[in-house]
Design a binder for these strands. Structure first.
Length: 155
DNA sequence: GCCAACGTTGGC
DNA sequence: GCCAACGTTGGC
């Protein structure tokens, strides 16, 4: 089992949106970065857990946990001309952007970006690396344990 | 294959 | 809204 951190703009999909969807699953649409896509397509496996991170908002940070629950399949938004994520260079014959579904696991105590930056235990966390813009990053088992146990106060 | 120009991300 | 940092594009 691997661990991840996945960024979403809460105006678009928040942890509450996910929790309130009928099946509590959502296709992780809109990734348009090759490295993030490759993490999602190639490295992720069903059953992996991910921090659900709110970005591009007043208070960025981790708001909950979700679980990878599908194999990769094409991101439909790339084919829709009026969609903000439309990619004219992609085609249904040879899709460029792929995604997986994630399932709601839990809301957690909100762990802010500032709080993570302040923790020496997280000094090497990929999210916090200088200039990082990846919307999907790996999280080490040690980082996952520290955040869930010490910052969220879970078992 | 280089690299300048441009567009995007995302915290502040 | 600003802007640093990064990724992508496209001419050469």
């Amino acid at each position: 089992m691997q661990f991840w951190l996945m960024k979403s703009e809460p105006d678009e999909v928040s942890i509450d949106h996910l929790a309130n969807l009928p099946a509590q699953t959502v296709p992780w649409f809109g990734v348009r970065n090759y490295q993030a896509r490759n993490f999602m397509c190639d490295a992720m496996q069903i059953g992996d857990l991910a921090f659900f991170y709110h970005s591009g908002c007043a208070e960025p940070g981790i708001a909950g946990i979700c679980e990878v629950c599908s194999e990769p399949y094409p991101d439909e938004t790339q084919f829709i001309a009026v969609n903000p994520y439309f990619d004219p260079k992609s085609s249904p014959d040879k899709p460029r952007w792929w995604l997986r579904d994630v399932r709601f696991v839990s809301k957690t105590r909100f762990v802010s970006l500032a709080e993570m930056r302040a923790a020496p235990e997280l000094a090497n966390m990929r999210l916090l690396a200088r200039g990082n813009r990846l919307s999907i990053t790996p999280v080490s088992a040690e980082e996952w344990q520290f955040i869930t146990q010490h910052l969220m106060g879970q078992q």
